[in-house]
């Protein structure tokens, strides 16, 4: 198993699930992801930022909803400070020159090694994922609120009869008695479940539809329909 920087990645929204037939005629369950086109907003370099990454944005945010800093991040704004910096001879970084974005994420990769080489202001489409066999998909899982131990940790619960009283779905014991005299940290209990960043790894990329900007990922991906997802090339190939 090796861990690699993603060679390509894109941002998108989960559309829903359906099924398609593969070349042998078998039914394949797929999740449809509407991905890109994304703009490259910034390239992080070792010299300036201390790490290398490509920052991309997805979906335009209306200007009235975007803060001034968000607008200034994607395009040059006239301000007293920028004028002063220009006078002082400070070079302003290159801007993408696009609309402010709703979803902005970074991929830890070099600009040359990401999606066949990118630069600020460039566009990333699903075409960059063509030929990719497997992908990792990251998104926010469906929120399930405060859930019991049975739902949250697949506990078995207790018996329906044989003297069990009003605790059929309880978690049971939480540990020993006098020694250690406490409950260990990390004990699986009831609590908030879901609505957390979740990644499914090594999902097969079934098809890429460049015309409609769609990705077909085999199997399920976390989150509700319409949720924002990050798709990148699988980085832990077995």
């Amino acid at each position: 198993m090796s861990v690699n920087a993603p060679t390509a990645g894109i941002l998108g929204r989960k559309v829903g699930m359906t099924q398609v037939f593969d070349e042998s005629g078998s039914v394949v369950p797929v999740t449809v992801v509407q991905a890109g086109p994304c703009h490259v907003l910034q390239v992080r370099t070792l010299d300036r930022d201390g790490y290398e990454a490509v920052q991309i944005g997805f979906l335009d945010k209306p200007r009235r909803l975007a803060s001034r800093s968000e607008r200034g991040h994607v395009a040059k704004l006239e301000s007293k400070r920028s004028k002063k910096r220009a006078e002082g001879g400070v070079e302003s970084p290159v801007k993408a020159g696009c609309e402010p974005k709703r979803l902005v994420r970074e991929f830890r990769a070099t600009a040359a090694g990401f999606a066949g080489g990118v630069e600020v202001g460039g566009e990333i489409t699903v075409a960059s994922l063509e030929g990719v066999a497997r992908v990792d998909v990251t998104s926010t899982s469906k929120g399930r609120g405060f859930s019991g131990a049975m739902r949250r940790h697949n506990f078995a619960g207790q018996r329906a009869t044989h003297g069990v009283k009003k605790c059929h779905r309880h978690m049971g014991g939480t540990g020993c008695s006098t020694y250690p005299g406490r409950v260990f940290k990390g004990k699986k209990m009831a609590g908030q479940y879901g609505a957390a960043r979740t990644t499914v790894r090594n999902q097969k990329l079934v098809a890429v539809d460049t015309e409609n900007n769609l990705l077909l990922v085999r199997g399920a991906i976390p989150g509700h329909k319409g949720t924002f997802v990050v798709v990148r090339t699988a980085n832990m190939l077995k």
Partner: peptide, 13 residues
């Protein structure tokens, strides 16, 4: 179906 984009995918099949 539930979404016009799903229709595109399903129609192809």
């Amino acid at each position: 179906s539930a979404h016009p984009l799903l229709d595109i995918v399903e129609k192809a099949c």
